[in-house]
Nucleic acid binder design. Structure first.
Lengths: 146, 146
DNA sequence: CTTGCACCTTAGAACCATTCCAATTTGTTG
DNA sequence: CAACAAATTGGAATGGTTCTAAGGTGCAAG
Protein backbone atom coordinates (compact mmCIF):
# COMPACT_ATOMS: atom_id res chain seq x y z
CA UNK A 1 0.00 0.00 0.00
CA UNK A 2 1.52 3.27 -1.14
CA UNK A 3 1.73 6.33 1.02
CA UNK A 4 -0.59 8.10 -1.40
CA UNK A 5 -3.15 5.39 -0.79
CA UNK A 6 -2.69 5.75 2.93
CA UNK A 7 -3.25 9.47 2.69
CA UNK A 8 -6.24 9.02 0.47
CA UNK A 9 -7.69 6.51 2.88
CA UNK A 10 -7.07 8.78 5.84
CA UNK A 11 -8.72 11.56 3.93
CA UNK A 12 -11.80 9.56 2.89
CA UNK A 13 -12.10 8.36 6.44
CA UNK A 14 -12.03 11.83 7.92
CA UNK A 15 -14.39 13.17 5.31
CA UNK A 16 -16.80 10.29 5.87
CA UNK A 17 -16.65 10.93 9.61
CA UNK A 18 -17.95 14.41 8.90
CA UNK A 19 -20.57 13.20 6.42
CA UNK A 20 -18.63 14.58 3.47
CA UNK A 21 -17.61 13.00 0.22
CA UNK A 22 -14.16 12.20 -1.01
CA UNK A 23 -13.66 13.89 -4.37
CA UNK A 24 -10.75 14.05 -6.79
CA UNK A 25 -10.37 17.75 -6.04
CA UNK A 26 -10.12 17.22 -2.31
CA UNK A 27 -7.67 14.38 -2.75
CA UNK A 28 -5.38 16.31 -5.04
CA UNK A 29 -5.45 19.42 -2.85
CA UNK A 30 -4.54 17.32 0.16
CA UNK A 31 -1.79 15.49 -1.73
CA UNK A 32 -0.32 18.78 -2.87
CA UNK A 33 -0.14 19.99 0.72
CA UNK A 34 1.52 16.79 1.88
CA UNK A 35 3.99 16.70 -0.99
CA UNK A 36 5.57 20.12 -0.54
CA UNK A 37 5.26 21.38 2.99
CA UNK A 38 6.25 24.95 2.39
CA UNK A 39 3.12 26.60 3.77
CA UNK A 40 1.66 27.54 0.41
CA UNK A 41 -1.09 30.09 -0.11
CA UNK A 42 -4.38 29.16 -1.76
CA UNK A 43 -3.03 30.59 -5.02
CA UNK A 44 0.08 28.48 -4.81
CA UNK A 45 -1.97 25.38 -4.08
CA UNK A 46 -4.15 26.28 -7.04
CA UNK A 47 -1.13 26.44 -9.33
CA UNK A 48 0.20 23.08 -8.13
CA UNK A 49 -3.14 21.33 -8.25
CA UNK A 50 -3.68 22.39 -11.85
CA UNK A 51 -0.88 20.09 -12.94
CA UNK A 52 -2.94 17.07 -12.04
CA UNK A 53 -6.39 18.58 -12.44
CA UNK A 54 -6.21 21.34 -15.05
CA UNK A 55 -9.87 22.32 -14.89
CA UNK A 56 -10.11 22.89 -11.15
CA UNK A 57 -11.23 26.37 -10.15
CA UNK A 58 -9.77 28.66 -7.53
CA UNK A 59 -13.10 28.68 -5.70
CA UNK A 60 -12.87 24.92 -5.40
CA UNK A 61 -9.36 25.15 -4.01
CA UNK A 62 -10.67 27.50 -1.34
CA UNK A 63 -13.56 25.14 -0.66
CA UNK A 64 -11.29 22.11 -0.39
CA UNK A 65 -8.83 23.87 1.90
CA UNK A 66 -11.68 24.98 4.12
CA UNK A 67 -12.98 21.42 4.20
CA UNK A 68 -9.57 20.02 5.13
CA UNK A 69 -9.26 22.55 7.92
CA UNK A 70 -12.72 21.56 9.19
CA UNK A 71 -11.68 17.92 9.22
CA UNK A 72 -8.54 18.77 11.18
CA UNK A 73 -6.23 17.47 8.52
CA UNK A 74 -4.70 20.85 7.82
CA UNK A 75 -3.95 24.00 9.78
CA UNK A 76 -4.58 27.48 8.41
CA UNK A 77 -1.89 29.91 9.46
CA UNK A 78 -1.88 33.70 9.36
CA UNK A 79 1.38 35.50 10.03
CA UNK A 80 0.71 39.18 9.58
CA UNK A 81 -1.52 40.51 6.83
CA UNK A 82 -1.46 38.66 3.57
CA UNK A 83 -2.84 35.44 2.19
CA UNK A 84 -3.61 32.57 4.54
CA UNK A 85 -1.11 29.74 4.40
CA UNK A 86 -1.80 26.05 4.82
CA UNK A 87 0.12 23.49 6.78
CA UNK A 88 -0.48 19.72 6.94
CA UNK A 89 1.69 19.27 10.03
CA UNK A 90 -0.66 18.19 12.77
CA UNK A 91 1.85 17.78 15.58
CA UNK A 92 2.02 20.68 18.00
CA UNK A 93 4.55 23.03 16.52
CA UNK A 94 5.51 26.67 16.36
CA UNK A 95 6.39 28.61 13.25
CA UNK A 96 9.59 30.50 12.63
CA UNK A 97 9.14 33.17 10.03
CA UNK A 98 12.45 34.11 8.45
CA UNK A 99 12.34 37.82 7.69
CA UNK A 100 15.16 37.57 5.19
CA UNK A 101 13.93 34.74 3.01
CA UNK A 102 10.23 34.95 3.77
CA UNK A 103 10.26 31.21 4.44
CA UNK A 104 8.48 29.58 7.32
CA UNK A 105 9.99 26.77 9.33
CA UNK A 106 8.14 24.36 11.61
CA UNK A 107 9.54 24.10 15.12
CA UNK A 108 8.53 21.07 17.15
CA UNK A 109 7.12 21.84 20.56
CA UNK A 110 7.73 19.47 23.46
CA UNK A 111 4.62 18.76 25.53
CA UNK A 112 6.14 20.18 28.68
CA UNK A 113 6.73 23.53 27.04
CA UNK A 114 3.11 23.72 25.97
CA UNK A 115 2.17 23.04 29.56
CA UNK A 116 4.38 25.86 30.81
CA UNK A 117 3.00 28.22 28.23
CA UNK A 118 -0.56 27.37 29.19
CA UNK A 119 0.30 27.92 32.83
CA UNK A 120 0.70 31.68 32.30
CA UNK A 121 -3.05 31.95 31.86
CA UNK A 122 -4.93 33.22 34.90
CA UNK A 123 -7.82 31.05 36.16
CA UNK A 124 -10.92 31.36 34.02
CA UNK A 125 -9.10 31.18 30.72
CA UNK A 126 -9.68 27.87 28.94
CA UNK A 127 -7.54 27.65 25.84
CA UNK A 128 -8.48 25.26 23.05
CA UNK A 129 -5.29 25.99 21.14
CA UNK A 130 -2.07 27.94 21.32
CA UNK A 131 -0.11 29.35 18.47
CA UNK A 132 3.51 30.45 18.73
CA UNK A 133 5.15 32.50 16.02
CA UNK A 134 8.79 33.52 15.98
CA UNK A 135 10.13 36.16 13.66
CA UNK A 136 13.77 36.71 12.90
CA UNK A 137 16.67 35.47 10.89
CA UNK A 138 17.83 31.91 10.45
CA UNK A 139 21.58 31.97 10.02
CA UNK A 140 23.60 29.41 8.11
CA UNK A 141 21.60 26.73 6.42
CA UNK A 142 19.01 25.23 8.67
CA UNK A 143 16.60 22.64 7.30
CA UNK A 144 14.33 24.44 4.87
CA UNK A 145 10.58 24.32 5.06
CA UNK A 146 9.07 26.99 2.84
CA UNK B 1 1.74 67.36 33.82
CA UNK B 2 -1.22 65.36 32.55
CA UNK B 3 -0.91 61.86 31.25
CA UNK B 4 -2.00 63.11 27.83
CA UNK B 5 0.94 65.48 27.86
CA UNK B 6 3.24 62.69 28.86
CA UNK B 7 1.97 60.56 26.02
CA UNK B 8 2.24 63.40 23.58
CA UNK B 9 5.79 64.05 24.68
CA UNK B 10 6.71 60.42 24.40
CA UNK B 11 5.18 60.38 20.95
CA UNK B 12 6.97 63.52 19.72
CA UNK B 13 10.17 62.13 21.12
CA UNK B 14 9.88 58.83 19.31
CA UNK B 15 8.82 60.49 16.10
CA UNK B 16 11.71 62.93 16.30
CA UNK B 17 14.08 60.04 16.89
CA UNK B 18 12.97 58.65 13.54
CA UNK B 19 13.13 62.03 11.81
CA UNK B 20 9.36 62.28 11.65
CA UNK B 21 7.02 65.08 12.67
CA UNK B 22 4.47 65.14 15.38
CA UNK B 23 1.10 65.99 13.85
CA UNK B 24 -2.39 66.39 15.30
CA UNK B 25 -3.49 63.27 13.42
CA UNK B 26 -0.70 61.15 14.83
CA UNK B 27 -1.34 62.42 18.33
CA UNK B 28 -5.05 61.76 18.24
CA UNK B 29 -4.62 58.30 16.75
CA UNK B 30 -2.15 57.42 19.46
CA UNK B 31 -4.38 58.86 22.20
CA UNK B 32 -7.31 56.85 20.91
CA UNK B 33 -5.28 53.67 21.15
CA UNK B 34 -4.14 54.45 24.67
CA UNK B 35 -7.59 55.44 25.86
CA UNK B 36 -9.49 52.29 24.95
CA UNK B 37 -7.24 49.28 24.75
CA UNK B 38 -9.60 46.91 23.08
CA UNK B 39 -7.45 46.07 20.07
CA UNK B 40 -9.44 48.11 17.59
CA UNK B 41 -9.25 47.75 13.83
CA UNK B 42 -8.22 50.64 11.60
CA UNK B 43 -11.90 51.30 10.90
CA UNK B 44 -12.69 51.45 14.59
CA UNK B 45 -9.80 53.79 15.22
CA UNK B 46 -11.05 55.91 12.33
CA UNK B 47 -14.51 56.18 13.90
CA UNK B 48 -13.10 57.16 17.29
CA UNK B 49 -10.61 59.64 15.93
CA UNK B 50 -13.31 61.45 14.00
CA UNK B 51 -14.81 62.68 17.25
CA UNK B 52 -11.82 64.88 17.88
CA UNK B 53 -10.73 65.38 14.28
CA UNK B 54 -13.80 65.15 12.04
CA UNK B 55 -11.98 65.71 8.76
CA UNK B 56 -9.35 63.02 9.12
CA UNK B 57 -9.32 60.45 6.34
CA UNK B 58 -9.13 56.68 6.58
CA UNK B 59 -5.91 56.72 4.58
CA UNK B 60 -4.35 58.96 7.20
CA UNK B 61 -5.46 56.62 9.96
CA UNK B 62 -3.68 53.80 8.15
CA UNK B 63 -0.62 56.01 7.70
CA UNK B 64 -0.55 57.03 11.34
CA UNK B 65 -0.98 53.47 12.57
CA UNK B 66 1.82 52.35 10.30
CA UNK B 67 4.02 55.16 11.63
CA UNK B 68 3.29 54.25 15.23
CA UNK B 69 4.16 50.64 14.53
CA UNK B 70 7.44 51.75 12.92
CA UNK B 71 8.27 53.79 16.01
CA UNK B 72 7.58 50.80 18.23
CA UNK B 73 4.84 52.55 20.12
CA UNK B 74 2.15 50.18 18.92
CA UNK B 75 1.94 46.52 17.93
CA UNK B 76 -0.06 45.30 14.96
CA UNK B 77 -1.76 42.01 15.63
CA UNK B 78 -3.28 39.52 13.20
CA UNK B 79 -5.31 36.65 14.56
CA UNK B 80 -6.66 34.71 11.62
CA UNK B 81 -7.91 36.44 8.50
CA UNK B 82 -9.61 39.74 8.99
CA UNK B 83 -8.65 43.29 9.70
CA UNK B 84 -5.39 44.01 11.51
CA UNK B 85 -5.82 45.10 15.12
CA UNK B 86 -3.68 47.55 17.04
CA UNK B 87 -2.37 47.31 20.55
CA UNK B 88 -0.46 49.97 22.51
CA UNK B 89 0.76 47.50 25.14
CA UNK B 90 4.52 47.36 24.76
CA UNK B 91 5.29 44.92 27.54
CA UNK B 92 5.86 41.35 26.39
CA UNK B 93 2.45 39.79 26.41
CA UNK B 94 0.41 37.09 24.77
CA UNK B 95 -3.11 37.43 23.43
CA UNK B 96 -6.08 35.36 24.44
CA UNK B 97 -8.75 35.40 21.80
CA UNK B 98 -12.14 34.54 23.26
CA UNK B 99 -14.05 32.57 20.65
CA UNK B 100 -17.37 33.29 22.29
CA UNK B 101 -17.21 37.05 22.67
CA UNK B 102 -14.64 37.81 20.00
CA UNK B 103 -12.73 39.88 22.54
CA UNK B 104 -8.99 39.79 22.96
CA UNK B 105 -7.30 39.83 26.33
CA UNK B 106 -3.68 40.68 27.03
CA UNK B 107 -1.79 38.09 29.07
CA UNK B 108 1.43 39.20 30.72
CA UNK B 109 4.41 37.04 30.01
CA UNK B 110 7.09 36.56 32.64
CA UNK B 111 10.64 36.89 31.31
CA UNK B 112 11.55 33.36 32.30
CA UNK B 113 8.75 31.95 30.20
CA UNK B 114 9.94 33.85 27.15
CA UNK B 115 13.36 32.37 27.75
CA UNK B 116 11.96 28.86 27.88
CA UNK B 117 9.94 29.45 24.75
CA UNK B 118 12.98 30.75 22.92
CA UNK B 119 14.94 27.74 24.03
CA UNK B 120 12.92 25.41 21.81
CA UNK B 121 14.62 26.92 18.77
CA UNK B 122 17.44 24.86 17.32
CA UNK B 123 20.81 26.61 16.88
CA UNK B 124 20.86 28.95 13.90
CA UNK B 125 17.48 30.47 14.57
CA UNK B 126 17.74 34.04 15.83
CA UNK B 127 14.35 35.35 16.81
CA UNK B 128 13.74 39.08 17.01
CA UNK B 129 10.25 38.60 18.43
CA UNK B 130 7.83 35.94 19.58
CA UNK B 131 4.09 36.07 19.43
CA UNK B 132 1.84 33.79 21.45
CA UNK B 133 -1.86 33.53 20.72
CA UNK B 134 -4.33 31.49 22.72
CA UNK B 135 -7.80 30.70 21.49
CA UNK B 136 -10.60 29.46 23.64
CA UNK B 137 -13.24 30.50 26.07
CA UNK B 138 -12.86 32.72 29.10
CA UNK B 139 -15.32 31.54 31.72
CA UNK B 140 -16.83 33.73 34.39
CA UNK B 141 -15.97 37.38 34.21
CA UNK B 142 -12.30 37.94 33.77
CA UNK B 143 -11.00 41.48 33.32
CA UNK B 144 -12.17 42.68 29.93
CA UNK B 145 -9.85 44.03 27.27
CA UNK B 146 -11.49 44.17 23.87
C1' DC C 1 9.24 87.78 5.98
C1' DT C 2 8.89 84.84 1.86
C1' DT C 3 10.47 81.17 -1.15
C1' DG C 4 11.71 76.48 -1.42
C1' DC C 5 11.38 72.11 -0.06
C1' DA C 6 10.38 67.95 2.46
C1' DC C 7 6.91 65.96 4.97
C1' DC C 8 1.90 65.07 5.62
C1' DT C 9 -2.76 64.60 4.62
C1' DT C 10 -6.51 63.71 1.67
C1' DA C 11 -10.07 61.48 -1.55
C1' DG C 12 -10.68 58.30 -4.50
C1' DA C 13 -9.04 54.73 -7.50
C1' DA C 14 -6.82 50.37 -7.63
C1' DC C 15 -5.64 45.95 -5.69
C1' DC C 16 -5.69 41.49 -3.78
C1' DA C 17 -7.45 37.73 -1.16
C1' DT C 18 -11.52 35.78 -0.26
C1' DT C 19 -16.48 34.86 -0.32
C1' DC C 20 -20.80 34.71 -2.56
C1' DC C 21 -23.93 33.36 -6.16
C1' DA C 22 -26.46 30.92 -9.57
C1' DA C 23 -25.93 27.41 -12.79
C1' DT C 24 -24.15 22.93 -13.82
C1' DT C 25 -22.23 18.45 -12.79
C1' DT C 26 -21.66 14.37 -10.06
C1' DG C 27 -22.91 10.79 -7.06
C1' DT C 28 -26.23 8.25 -4.29
C1' DT C 29 -30.56 6.29 -3.00
C1' DG C 30 -35.12 4.76 -3.70
C1' DC D 1 -33.47 5.59 -14.18
C1' DA D 2 -35.57 9.45 -11.39
C1' DA D 3 -34.94 12.47 -7.82
C1' DC D 4 -32.29 14.68 -4.66
C1' DA D 5 -28.17 16.16 -2.13
C1' DA D 6 -23.50 17.40 -2.30
C1' DA D 7 -19.68 19.52 -5.01
C1' DT D 8 -17.75 22.17 -8.52
C1' DT D 9 -17.43 26.08 -11.47
C1' DG D 10 -16.73 30.99 -13.32
C1' DG D 11 -17.69 35.26 -12.49
C1' DA D 12 -19.38 38.95 -9.75
C1' DA D 13 -19.15 41.09 -5.33
C1' DT D 14 -16.92 42.30 -0.97
C1' DG D 15 -13.76 43.96 2.47
C1' DG D 16 -9.48 45.51 3.98
C1' DT D 17 -5.59 47.80 2.59
C1' DT D 18 -2.36 50.29 -0.41
C1' DC D 19 -1.41 53.44 -4.11
C1' DT D 20 -1.58 57.80 -6.50
C1' DA D 21 -1.81 62.43 -7.52
C1' DA D 22 -2.98 66.78 -5.72
C1' DG D 23 -3.07 70.02 -2.17
C1' DG D 24 -1.63 71.66 2.61
C1' DT D 25 1.96 72.76 6.42
C1' DG D 26 5.85 74.14 8.59
C1' DC D 27 10.70 74.77 9.03
C1' DA D 28 15.20 76.78 6.95
C1' DA D 29 18.00 79.67 4.16
C1' DG D 30 18.30 83.80 2.04
Amino acid sequence: MSSATLNTDALSQRLADSGLRSTPQREVVYDVLLKKRDHPTADEVFARVKNGLPTISLATVYNCLETLVQCNLVRAVNFERGPTRYCPNLLPHAHFHDEKTGKTHDIDLPADLLEKVNSVLPPGYNPSSVEIIFRGKATGEVASSG
